[in-house]
């Protein structure tokens, strides 16, 4: 499940953010508890707690005392906004670089994308 190249709590946080972004977790939906997470993935509860702490600090999750953690109503929108900003630098630019390296014409890419859409 987890690789050992980066801290597990970051990997958990990223996974939850991805679930929110793709709509697998919707606004005000309850997420698994720290302990459920820990036992499910066989990780230390403190590590799982750290991930949830980071997500609440960043406002993607909110706590309801005695009940659990829930997805913030604006979480998906905020994540989208953030990813949109990075889309061109993180996704498009490497793709263009790769295309150039292997000799694919930009027009060809545009054509391909239009066909897909």
């Amino acid at each position: 499940m987890f690789d050992d190249r980066s801290p597990i709590y970051q990997q958990i946080a990223e996974k939850i953010k991805k679930d929110i972004l793709y709509g697998d977790l919707t606004a005000d939906e309850q997420v698994m508890s720290t302990n459920q997470y820990a036992s499910f993935y066989r990780i230390n509860p403190a590590t799982a707690a750290k991930a949830f702490q980071q997500l609440t600090d960043d406002g993607y999750l909110y706590k309801r005392r005695g009940i659990g953690m829930f997805v913030s109503p604006d979480a998906q929108e905020r994540l989208r906004a953030g990813r949109r900003e990075k889309f061109f630098s993180d996704v498009v630019r490497p793709m263009v670089a790769e295309a150039r390296a292997v000799g694919i014409d930009l027009q060809e890419i545009i054509h391909h994308l239009k066909e897909q859409a």
């Binding site: 987890f2 597990i8 230390n44 590590t47």
Partner: peptide
């Protein structure tokens, strides 16, 4: 590899001396 995710902190010793005491998760990366 198999158990590291269970630990909150790790202590590494070698030849009867402390090499490192660190949060387990921080050691990744």
């Amino acid at each position: 590899e198999e158990v590291a995710s269970l630990f909150e902190e790790v202590i590494i010793i070698d030849r009867g001396r402390l090499v490192l005491h660190e949060e387990s998760d921080a050691l990744r990366g």
